[in-house]
């Protein structure tokens, strides 16, 4: 599903954000990406979303090679990928319904399709009774659930999450994680960058640790920090 081979990425001269990264993630996996601030987690996710091109190396996502993909194909590629972020990225002047529907409108889906799918998705994230509210009338956790509904409305093969619980209290964090787990159980591959020790340690999923742009550790039922692992 995701394959990264010898990827280097630097923003400035001699300041690498990714150094010789190689990894492989299968369909349906749930993977945490951890590492200190500035270690390259967001950069890795941006490369997988084709928001950045690697300097060298190759990246396959959902069957497509990204470093050679022409710009006009990128929008069609992104329709197979969902993405959520620490800052939610909702549109403040649209309602909950409008925010989720927007993702369908701008890829040319019909009104009927939108009317069918959006309420269903809001039901899934538990916000059907708040569909007419605006983002600033919601808690952080609810806003992130709207963002998840928007990211998942096209049933993407892969969900990329960059610190989705970074702005949330533990209770809201757990409700978001519950949702991500459910989405993962439908067969969607989830890749989540996080600093949240509690979540990583209690979920015991695959953990990839980045350190100064290098992959330092790749563990199948891992924990957040080294030395705390139990077998």
């Amino acid at each position: 599903m995701i394959k990264v081979e010898n990827v280097y990425k630097r923003y400035k001269e001699d300041q690498y954000a990714l150094v010789d990264c190689s990894l492989e993630i299968d369909r349906g996996e749930f993977v945490f990406v951890v590492g200190a601030s500035g270690s390259g987690k967001s950069t890795l996710l941006r490369v997988l979303l084709r928001e950045e091109r690697p300097d060298t190396g190759q990246v396959w996502v959902a069957g497509k090679e990204l470093s050679s993909m022409p710009g006009w194909k990128v929008p069609f590629f992104r329709r197979n990928i969902g993405a959520i972020f620490q800052d939610f990225r909702l549109l403040p002047n649209k309602t909950v319904f409008g925010n989720v529907a927007f993702a369908l409108e701008v890829i040319g889906k019909s009104k009927r399709h939108i009317m069918n799918h959006v309420p269903q998705m809001l039901e899934l994230v538990g916000l059907h009774d708040k569909q007419d509210r605006f983002p600033d009338e919601l808690s952080g956790g609810e806003q992130q659930r709207v963002a998840i509904a928007r990211a998942f409305i096209n049933r993407p093969l892969i969900l990329l999450a960059d610190e989705p619980t970074g702005n949330l209290d533990p209770e809201n964090s757990w409700s978001v994680m519950g949702l991500l787990e459910r989405i993962n159980r439908t067969g969607t591959t989830v890749l989540m960058a996080t600093h949240d020790v509690g979540i990583v340690d209690s979920m015991r999923r695959r953990v990839i640790e980045l350190d100064h742009g290098q992959i330092k550790r790749d563990q199948t039922r891992g924990v957040y920090g080294l030395g705390q692992q139990t077998s």
């Binding site: 710009g71 929008p75 329709r79 993405a83 990225r89 549109l91 993702a103 701008v106 096209n154």
Partner: peptide
């Protein structure tokens, strides 16, 4: 710009934007 960023994120084509 926020709308445009979201459009790009969810795969709106360049001409659509």
């Amino acid at each position: 710009r926020r709308e445009v960023a979201v459009m790009k994120l969810v795969g709106a084509t360049n001409w659509f934007i």
